[in-house]
Design a protein around this nucleic acid. Structure first.
Lengths: 341, 341
DNA sequence: AATTGGTTCTGAACCGTTACGGTCCTTTCA
DNA sequence: TGAAAGGACCGTAACGGTTCAGAACCAATT
């Protein structure tokens, strides 16, 4: 029976036709994919775990790019892509247990996420993205720390010493406000932690007391958060000459807030982002471009190539510093230079 | 064993602990989701079929909105969302057969798509989107014909009689060029067919010979197609006063082509779209806004509510005519009015 | 002491497929 | 003509859970 459908060469065309005929007559709907998966131990799909609500994946430009790349890799391999619902509110890991997949891609979740733990317990290959190297599973990411360090150097070179920072959520709990050094250091989102630490290192080297730099955190990732975060920084210290945001979306929001206050970018204030999304490019944003699509594709390739038991691989993709028209010398730049190195 | 994991109330805590302990000691990775699915006849996921390459879903704004809505519905129900690879090039329906899902959502495929046929043969509930009412499965869509008729009436009211049209692909074969009336009528993409027929009806009523209207088709759906399509129309008849595009993406492309030719919108030429995407809104595009997110959500709800054997339901969502700043009276509008009704 | 009722635990059947090995029949070659 | 070889076909055993019937056990009631 199975042969009639899947292995036409194993039987005569006549028998095959007869089998298929009677099957149709009996209302047989064709082989059941789940039973097939059980027997062959192949689900024909890879799972994607995001910490955000499922629909977030379709709202964030960087996430969309990542998904597109991952989808491309799946397409090439003929595998399906299962979006696993993982609501960060309730700690319901049942969805992870119930996912019939041949492997997992975990994208940008906090390192203490119970869903991540649940995935790692499953006996299937896994690729983590934007995570610290766990040593046990494949990893793909970028050098967030180094890239942000480079961006900071650019700003320092322009003369900026008095800065403010707006970053994405650092942990699973909502903390919309200023961030203590402790919280920065203990951040559960690898990406954010490293970007901040790259900043801290560069500015410390330039003689800035990092503990005095206002760093504002926002739980939700959208332009409104960027705007309100910028407002909070500017309320605290109206003298900052640069607003460094850890994502383009936040930076675009910060720019609207600057405009609302009548501050001209970059003449009155410098604004920078991170990611290299389309909308940022159109706005001429100074940022770090990371290859989000390639990241997704690499993750997919890594997962689908997991045939040989090669020891866990770690892939770092290249980033590029984009100097746009939202960064310039601070207004009082000339004077400040006198105190520079 | 199963009870220890899933039905803690069925056995004493002591035995449960003992079972789980030895399970861990033996390296048991927890219940296998596929076997569970086979037994319970529930996959815990719904499949999404798109005719385009998988990654298309993440590149087209309307598709992204639809996906987001669908993802929201899945999230609410705690089900996964499986993107089924369905390469339109090779007629490989195996991916449909291999998808372990509790139901299918079919989004915007040609009515003769073999993948669609394969889905309909599967004994699972199905919801089709932007499809003719098949009578056998649930459907969700909009009144494409009526909406486009209304838009056409708006243009007719402004005085437009000499128009050109740029539309998306009408069938599975690539036909980048002018469209014969036959091809329009036989179009396999329900949405495009109806939008064109709405236009034809309105302009015929206004005394325009529809068979003389240049209609250009483009296989790929992106701004470049819109630009080249507009160029082809304008080359054929430089006198057209309005370019009607069957999607916002095409319209935005058409506007770049108009700009390239030094035509000012709407002073020299009117351009209209369809969908109501963000980028169009920002450009002030005259268009029909359709609730793409709601469409996805409705499709998901319909599918996940399929418990009772209600007869196939058909949902039509409301659209809204958006009169932006890309439509105006034709340059020679005043004179043409003399011949109007 | 026997019946009843209730709980905890065990075992077997079943879900639908594919892989595998065995039977049977036909063909080929010494 | 007989043996070997090969192809077509068929039956059966997993795959790994869930479910359900009934066994075993204990306590309380008649």
């Amino acid at each position: 029976m199975s042969n009639a459908y899947n292995r036409p060469d194993q039987l005569s065309p006549e028998l095959r036709r007869r089998v298929l005929d009677t099957a149709r007559r009996l209302g047989y709907p064709g082989p059941d994919p789940v039973a097939r998966s059980l027997r062959t131990r192949k689900a024909g799909a890879v799972g994607l775990l995001l910490t955000e609500n499922l629909s977030y994946a379709f709202r964030d430009p960087a996430a969309i790019g990542f998904l597109e790349g991952l989808a491309l890799a799946c397409e090439d391999a003929g595998t399906g892509l299962l979006l696993v619902p993982a609501n960060p509110e309730r700690e319901d890991v049942a969805s992870v247990h119930r996912a019939g997949v041949d492997g997992f891609v975990v994208y940008s979740v906090p390192d203490d996420d119970p869903h991540l733990a649940a995935v790692l317990e499953r006996p299937v290959p896994t690729v983590v993205c934007d995570q610290p190297d766990l040593g046990t599973v494949d990893r793909v990411g970028i050098d967030d720390r180094g890239a942000m360090y480079e961006l900071a150097k650019h700003l320092i070179g322009l003369g900026h010493r008095r800065i403010g920072v707006v970053c994405m959520r650092l942990a699973r709990d909502r903390n919309d406000g200023f961030v203590t050094p402790d919280r920065q250091h203990a951040a559960h989102f690898h990406v954010q932690r490293n970007r901040l630490s790259g900043l801290a290192e560069a500015f410390s080297e330039a003689g800035v007391d990092w503990s005095q730099v206002p760093v504002v955190e926002r739980f939700d990732h959208n332009m409104a958060s960027g705007a309100s975060g910028a407002a909070q920084v500017l309320d605290r210290d109206p003298q900052v000459t640069a607003l460094i945001c850890t994502s383009d979306v936040l930076a675009l929001g910060a720019m609207t807030e600057a405009a609302r206050r009548g501050l001209r970018v970059p003449h009155d204030i410098t604004v920078t982002g991170f990611d290299g999304i389309r909308a940022g490019e159109e706005a001429g944003l100074t940022t770090v471009r990371q290859p989000v699509l390639e990241k997704g594709r690499a993750a997919g390739k890594l997962l689908l190539d997991a045939n040989e038991r090669s020891r866990p691989r770690s892939v770092n993709l290249a980033t590029e510093l984009i100097i746009g028209k939202t960064s310039g010398a601070p207004r009082g730049g000339a004077e400040e230079r006198w105190f520079g190195p």
